[in-house]
Design a protein around this nucleic acid. Structure first.
Length: 997
RNA sequence: GGGCGGUUAGCUCAGCUGGUAGAGCGUCUCGCUUACACCGAGAAUGUCGGGGGUUCGAAUCCCUCACCGCCCA
């Protein structure tokens, strides 16, 4: 049955996939040859509930190319697949679906039932992305599919694997080594999911915001002289004040202020350091007094130079508070509503007041009263204090903000400025952004003073705000008990491994980023207040003592007779995926796979995930098994749309890889991915380009179809390169060997783009454009048999070399073009010696192809009809050129559309073509426009002259000849000679035409 | 503010350790020559972001400025 005109990807892909799977072609060690090394790759596990997007498609294409290549080379290959339980994301997806179905909420269900429900969701979703990866052609060992939560309590019976035990064991080990600790720390709190998240899961986005300026009155009506000076020390402003001016973007957090801080060098506030000031919110009779302290943190040039310190709700403030011993008062609950728990405000405020007083005494700013006892509170006692005034309790943080601003402004404690356009007073400098009343809700009637309308000073300005990368709500820094990995203690080996080259990161800029992050590593918060995940294996007794053990029985054994409760938190998903390399290979069992495939060869992943995952895997593997997880890390950029925009649903510019596969086939998408994969930078995806690579596949298809029509495949069997006699055949075999070398070298260096480029140029530019054309006349001559053999071999090599890039179409061709011993997926990657490259054949074919090109170009430019067969006169020929010409005369005549060839003098009316060692003329009396031909020749001469000028200039420069390497000088010399020769021939032709007039 | 990267043909990008710019797509002209119109033949197009420097020679190395992007504050 003759071949179709095009490859039917939609029909064939599923069928071919099935064949591979049925043959277990992707199993670990499939096609491995004795003595060959192992090659292993861990898939970056996609979210189990996710679906394939372009980033996955790109990432997995590259992995598959490497894996298929190594497998064909006979390496003992493993591509380990699997999915990630993705704590927050999966919990979110499940809850959303539950709500849509009208199922009971998570809280109504309770933890156990909910967890079971998420398992259902997982089983339902799991097939989606795995199936999509298979559609892309990923040759993972699917029988080994892993899951980061396999083996966890509650897992369905048919759920295989046991990743859970590995995770728990690592936690216990690290805990016992003192590398994991629990503590009350300020963490990023997601009020939507009501869990802590790591700083990497926070996106800082600049949004429009406001900065309010408020007066904090000094205690007891005290006053001081506030003086501002310019750079030369001249006084520019002087005023007696009874307050200190504070700027804030978050007025609601004033309730939790523990101090006001100024820079130690700030002379303006020196007189009042160590005094108390009043937080201007809350019931008047219970206003809290807080100390004015010094710290390096406040920037004297920013705002008023004074900063309120709210240790429990701001990371910078937290650091200041820790340094100064200032208490941190938590104001909000898990949903970022103002706290409604605890004793009434009046009582809490009284206790906090004593804290301030005690601080002054402790720091020596105040002398203790005779009966005054030192006053301290434990962390837990401070946390229990709710300093939210009764009327604000239970409010959302933004509602509370609004109320606080209103109350302060009404009381006259907002800093006031004259309404624009009047110029504001010095000392306040609202700047151009000063905006009366700010948001409509903040509007307060202006107060008349000295006849000028005064308004509250509220700056409208962009502020950086943290958002949860999943929930998209504003993150609240929150003081909570969390578990941390003491990363500082395990970071050094991870740094050392890259510094020493034990693990190589490419591109090298990735290494710089890696160092930068690890050298400034922060403790890693690994607890999450979720239900879906690995529950932390720590139990507490009634006294709060911790028992860390692999299970409850073991914990109980550590605490005989005590009643234990387990920590309800789960581990950060990245903690478990951090163990992906060893966990998927069966660790802690000393499995064969672990021995063979660990450390893994290559990790291919996006550069956005360097910190999240790569760096943490490095730290964890080194800490747990004292070895690097991978030899090489290949980082690639993010896939964008054709204009470079990030693909997002809201922008509507998402390109769905599955739609692309439907329309163009997986091979086209894969080849496009490979061709785009230059090192570094952004990846802009253009469907036109994908269509181009679909066409490329068709091109190969049709070359094979042509071969079939010419009986090339009859009796064909895969074998070594034939030894033909015809130059064209020798030449294409050499080209094949050169291409193989180029592909090998490119892939060794992870240059998927240059590998793809080399293959494209070879298959289209050499095989299809030239070799197939050469073969047509050869099939009619004495060399027909060897040409058939050569073409079969060359097309075989093309299929083999393209297979890692375009597995489907090549496997299909492989199956339809001959009797094959094995599937292409397991066919040996060729080893072609350089001796196959015949330099003489190469030179001869270059002569032939450039001559054909030049004749075609000359004809086209002077509008000789393509259909017209012209005559050719060789006006001069060296012996070598004559021999080359004669040997390939049939090819030249056919492709350049030449009728007869003679040697002799050029007729006057003819077009001229110069070649190496030869000059030709095509007599075309009456057919060509003399003026046009003259113009063409003149243009060619001009171009040559310019080149000659440049080359001469260089060679005439004694410094060039003296300092440049010898081969460069020689090359310039021979180039010059060739150009001069060519120019002479064209000049000669030009002269002949001029004679004609 | 700190760090990293980018700025090359209309578009998207290559261009290694300095030797005088390339590929795909798009554009234009011609063509149904029995593998392929998802095709063939031909053509056009760039003071390699600006300025300075090193060098016989710079897209390539150094400095500087401008703009863009990413990461971290």
């Amino acid at each position: 049955m003759p071949m179709e005109k095009t490859f039917n990807a939609a029909e064939a892909e599923a069928r071919i996939s099935q064949r591979w799977l049925k043959a277990r072609a992707f199993g670990a060690g499939a096609n491995a040859k004795p003595g060959r090394p192992a090659f292993s790759v861990m898939i970056p596990p996609p979210n189990v509930t996710g679906s394939l997007h372009m980033g996955h498609a790109f990432n997995n294409t590259l992995q598959d190319i490497l894996v298929r290549w190594h497998r064909m080379k006979g390496d003992d290959t493993l591509w380990q697949p699997g999915t990630d339980h993705a704590g927050i994301a999966t919990q979110m997806v499940t809850e959303r679906e539950m709500a849509a179905n009208g199922e009971p909420s998570r809280r109504e269900m309770g933890r156990e039932k909910f967890t079971a429900r998420v398992w259902q969701q997982k089983q339902k979703s799991r097939g989606t992305i795995i199936g999509q990866l298979q559609r892309l052609g990923c040759s993972c060992d699917w029988d080994r599919e892993a899951f980061t939560m396999s083996g966890a309590p509650g897992a369905p019976a048919d759920e295989e694997g046991n990743f859970h035990d590995a995770v728990i064991k690592v936690f216990v080990d690290l805990y016992n080594k003192g590398l994991i600790y629990r503590g009350k720390r300020l963490v990023n709190w997601d009020p939507h999911f009501e869990t802590a998240i790591s700083d990497l899961e926070v996106e800082n986005i600049e949004v429009p915001g406001h900065m309010w300026h408020f007066k904090y009155p000094l205690a007891g009506g005290e006053t001081y002289e506030y003086v501002e000076k310019d750079a030369d020390g001249n006084v520019t402003f002087r005023e007696v004040r009874n307050y200190i001016s504070i700027a804030t973007t978050r007025p609601e957090t004033m309730l939790g202020d523990g101090a006001v801080a100024v820079h130690p060098s700030d002379e303006r506030y020196a007189p009042i350091v160590g005094k108390l000031c009043e937080i201007p919110v809350g019931p008047k009779e219970h206003r809290r007094l807080i100390p004015i302290i010094t710290d390096e943190y406040p920037d004297p040039t920013f705002g008023s130079g004074a900063v309120k310190i709210t240790g429990a709700h701001d990371f910078n403030d937290y650091a200041v508070a820790r340094r100064a011993g200032i208490p941190c008062y938590r104001l909000m609950d898990t949903r970022a509503h103002m706290r409604a728990d605890g004793v009434p405000y009046a009582e809490a405020a009284k206790v906090a007041q004593r804290m301030s007083r005690a601080w002054l005494v402790a720091k020596g700013y105040a002398t203790p009263g005779i009966a005054e006892q030192p006053f301290t509170l434990s962390e837990a006692e401070i946390d229990a204090l709710n300093l939210v005034p009764d009327d604000l309790r239970g409010l959302d943080r933004y509602e509370a903000r609004k109320r606080v601003v209103e109350a302060i402004t009404a009381e006259g404690l907002a800093v006031m400025v004259p309404a624009p356009p009047a110029k504001p007073r010095p000392g306040l400098d609202p700047g151009p952004l000063a905006e009366p009343g700010a948001a409509a809700s903040d509007e307060v009637p202006g107060q008349a003073r000295d006849g000028v309308e005064m308004i509250p000073y509220v700056e409208s300005k962009p502020i950086m705000q943290p958002f949860g990368d999943r929930s998209k709500v504003v993150i609240e820094p929150m003081l909570t008990d969390q578990w941390f990995v003491d990363t500082a203690k395990i970071v050094e080996p991870a740094l050392e491994a890259v510094r020493s080259g034990r693990t190589k990161i490419i591109p090298p800029s990735g290494e710089k980023t890696y160092y930068h992050w690890l050298e400034n590593i922060e403790p890693w918060c690994i607890s999450r207040q979720l239900w879906w995940g690995h529950q932390i294996p720590v139990w507490f007794d009634e006294d709060g003592n911790q028992y860390c053990a692999e299970n409850e029985a073991a914990a109980q054994a550590m605490a005989p007779g005590r009643k234990l409760t387990r920590d309800p938190d789960v581990l950060d998903t990245w903690f478990s995926s951090g163990l992906w390399p060893i966990g998927t290979l069966g660790w802690p069992e000393p499995t064969e796979e672990l021995k063979k495939y660990f450390p893994t060869s290559v990790l291919v992943t996006g550069q956005d995930i360097l910190f999240f995952w790569v760096a943490r895997m490095m730290m964890m593997q080194l800490a747990v098994v004292n070895d690097v997880p991978f030899r090489t890390v290949y980082l690639h950029g993010l896939v964008r749309d054709a204009k470079g925009k990030k693909m997002s649903k809201s922008l509507g510019n998402v390109i769905d890889p599955l739609e692309i596969i439907d329309e163009y086939g997986a091979d086209a998408l894969r080849f496009a991915n490979a061709a785009m994969a230059s090192l570094g930078g952004v990846l802009k995806l253009d469907t036109q380009r994908i269509a181009g690579y679909r066409n490329f596949g068709t091109k190969l298809w049709n070359a094979c179809r042509f071969a079939e029509m010419n009986g090339v495949w009859e009796g064909h069997a895969t074998g070594p390169a034939p030894s033909p006699g015809a130059t064209a055949n020798k030449w294409i075999i050499g080209e094949t060997a050169k291409t193989l070398a180029e592909v090998n070298e490119s892939l060794e260096n992870f240059r998927f783009d240059t590998a793809a480029d080399a293959l494209y140029k070879f298959v289209w530019g050499k095989v299809c454009d030239w070799y197939v054309e050469f073969a047509k006349p050869l099939f009619d001559g004495p060399d027909a048999e060897e040409t058939r053999k050569t073409m079969a071999w060359v097309l075989d090599q093309s299929m083999i070399l393209l297979h890692p890039f375009m597995p489907f179409i090549t496997e299909e061709l492989w199956g339809t073009t001959g009797r094959r011993a094995k599937l292409l997926v397991h066919t040996d990657w060729p080893e072609l010696p350089a001796t196959l490259i015949d330099r003489a054949a190469e030179r001869e074919m270059t002569f032939v192809t450039t001559l054909i090109d030049d004749i075609r170009s000359a004809r086209a430019q002077v509008h000789v009809p393509v259909g017209l067969k012209a005559d050719l006169v060789a006006t001069s020929l060296t012996d070598e050129a004559r021999a080359a010409f004669q040997r390939n005369e049939v090819l030249i005549k056919r492709l350049a559309r030449i009728d007869t060839v003679t040697e002799g003098a050029a007729p006057k009316a003819s077009i001229a073509v110069a070649a190496e060692g030869a000059a030709f003329a095509i007599p075309l009396e009456g057919l060509i426009d003399i003026a046009e031909e003259k113009a063409r020749l003149q243009k060619a001469c001009d171009r040559l002259q310019k080149e000659i000028g440049g080359l001469k200039g260089r060679l005439d420069n004694p410094n060039f000849v003296k300092s440049a390497p010898e081969d460069v000088v020689m090359e310039a010399q021979s180039n010059l000679e060739a150009r001069v020769e060519e120019a002479a021939k064209l000049q000669e032709a030009l002269r002949r035409l001029s004679d004609l007039g």
